[in-house]
Design a protein around this nucleic acid. Structure first.
Lengths: 355, 355
DNA sequence: CTGAAAGCGCTAACAG
DNA sequence: CTGTTAGCGCTTTCAG
């Protein structure tokens, strides 16, 4: 058995040693312990420091971050609220936010709003009580509900992925319009005379922007638009699957489709297979987001890749920069066409085996 | 402009109102404010309560969770450490952990170890400093490194997905051996005379257990084993892709393969397509994990589905239950065969459109 | 170079 | 029913 302070028997049984105990054991004052732990602000003689370090080690002392934050009047925690962590897009986003935060010594609190505004509110509230140093929000719905509560608060906030009309807060967004237009244009260049759009839900700004890009590309190419080419569904594989069936079961089914998210596109691929419709020969598909999984579908999914990493990192940086805050700024990150087989281009796995 | 206490001009500029200000405005003592906020432990007259509530509202008062926790000597936060949030398996796990924690009013701190033991350690350390009420760990490698540090601490810990030999701590694990054996047996029942195994990395307990199950099923069926049937790769799509190419490029390539994770299996499906090998006609495939995405590959991926939700919820419950802790217990959750097209069974999307 | 002590915001005795 | 007050563990002036 270890020589350390009494081994834990039950659970959560043992108390954490405090600064007082360390001081006592080292035969110094608590202030000195603090100077050692923080390497400042006052100097400590080498000998004393040594004794303190030994006491810390012997006791297994771990500074209490809560007390520290209380005293400092600021935490090192940042909050992230997303619609669903199990959605690979938010998973990837979360990874980069976490990674960047970790570099800066931040802890990351995450909340899933699960598509519920009420739940989103509750998380905003909870994180505010935890006095997070910053809050990154991928808002649900039109985000108006959270806007008010946030505007009244003192935390720096960044919204990600979706603009929130009423909120004058920095935003990091993909260039949805340009991306959707590029995807549509690419399909047109493959020679299709019309391109359908399997869009995201109504009323969600990022969804509307992608529809806008699609429609703009059609206009530019002087392709006549028609309502029957546009179908809105929820984001997500299952919704994409059902939407695709609806499109594909029509007598005049489309030959090419721009899908507003990769997740929906996975559903489209599955639906086409289910109906015996070959991709890309009978149906050309382009998705949006650039998920890692898109490189592994059969055929590979051509998609508009967002730089999720840049988005996550930029969000954290915006929160973290202690520089005088410029007026709330919206940054549009470029998306780029990532060619694979589903649109009719050659279907090669990325060289170098990037993933 | 709102009538509330001075609007924030810069960022993080405004201070949070404190309990003292609320008390002053309501003309009561701070204790009463506390009684109102916590609805106890002492009763408060309706009139006073009313005044306090108004003051709270007027000031936009939000109790400081840090101070509260410091005082209470315990937090409501739970820590989750996973290898990679962007991996859909851990994403799904995270979702359920979060969901269950949320019900209990817990905040969730998450850390990505990114496959690095050092990083895992640092997160354990960080979360301990935050005095999390409990820690859920999906350990990297053999997990031995974290074991010691955890054993010395006072936090309740649960390990998930992978056993840690040296750690006497509750564990929630899938029944890897039985699952792998069932998958292998199913492939054998399809009439294949031998079944290859594309396994996970060496030295990871959960990976070894799946190999064990595969080999056991082969033994039982009196199928001669051979080293050439077993290939280990890292978990992940890219590794699965490369491993599959290696298997498929052999002159005596296997006709049926049990793959140790769905992620790897996605790579296998892609590799087969790349080589013009049809699934399931030329190659039957079964994965492991039961990711949601597995229902959307082409063909649908037959897989051993884990009940990730049950695992996540059970982990939280184990941490949260304030009942006297029974001896560290290991729970094995059953996995069940989920039939789709990749093994040669009929390929239907789940009825009811579960997803 | 080191120590004493005030106080971060909150809760819960204890005393009215 | 309500008020006073002693800390929770830490940092940091201010004196030595």
């Amino acid at each position: 058995m270890s020589s350390r302070a009494g081994a834990a028997k039950g659970r959560g049984t043992r108390r954490y040693p405090t600064r007082d105990e360390v001081a006592r054991l080292a035969g110094t004052s608590t202030a000195v312990v603090s100077y050692v732990v923080n390497d400042g602000p006052r100097p400590v003689s080498a000998a004393t420091k040594e004794r303190v370090l030994e006491a810390i080690e012997a006791l297994g002392y771990r500074p209490n971050a809560l007390a520290r934050s209380l005293r400092a009047r600021r935490t090192q925690a940042i909050g992230l609220i997303v619609p669903d962590l199990a959605n690979p897009f938010f998973g990837e986003l979360g990874r980069w936010v976490e990674d960047r935060g970790f570099d800066g010594g931040n802890a990351l609190l995450v909340g899933n709003s699960m598509g519920s505004e009420e739940r989103e509110q509750r998380y905003v509230e909870l994180f505010l009580q935890y006095r997070v140093a910053g809050l990154i929000l991928v808002p649900i719905g039109d985000g108006r509900a959270s806007a008010q509560r946030l505007r009244e608060s003192a935390v720096p906030v960044v919204v990600l992925d979706r603009p929130v009309p009423g909120l004058a807060v920095p935003a990091v967004l993909p260039d949805n319009v340009a991306g959707a237009a590029a995807a549509t244009r690419h399909l047109l260049e493959h020679g299709y005379s019309e391109v359908a759009c399997l869009a995201g839900p109504d009323g969600l700004a990022s969804s509307e922007e992608r529809v806008e890009g699609w429609s703009r590309a059609l206009d530019e190419a002087l392709v006549p638009m028609s309502g029957r080419l546009l179908l809105r569904t929820a984001f997500g594989r299952a919704a994409g699957y059902r939407g695709a069936l609806e499109l594909l079961d029509r007598a005049d089914r489309p030959r090419a489709v721009f899908v507003a998210s990769d997740e929906q596109a996975f559903g489209v691929l599955r639906a086409a297979a289910h109906r015996g419709i070959r991709v890309p020969e009978d149906l050309a598909v382009i998705g949006f987001d650039g998920l890692e999984q898109a490189a592994f579908t059969v055929p590979g999914l051509t998609t508009m890749r967002q730089d999720v990493r840049a988005a996550g990192e930029l969000a954290v940086r915006t929160l973290t920069d202690r520089s005088p805050q410029p007026a709330a700024r919206t940054v549009r990150l470029p998306v780029r066409l990532c060619l694979r087989g589903s649109c009719g281009c050659p279907d090669k796995l990325e060289e170098g085996g990037a993933w």
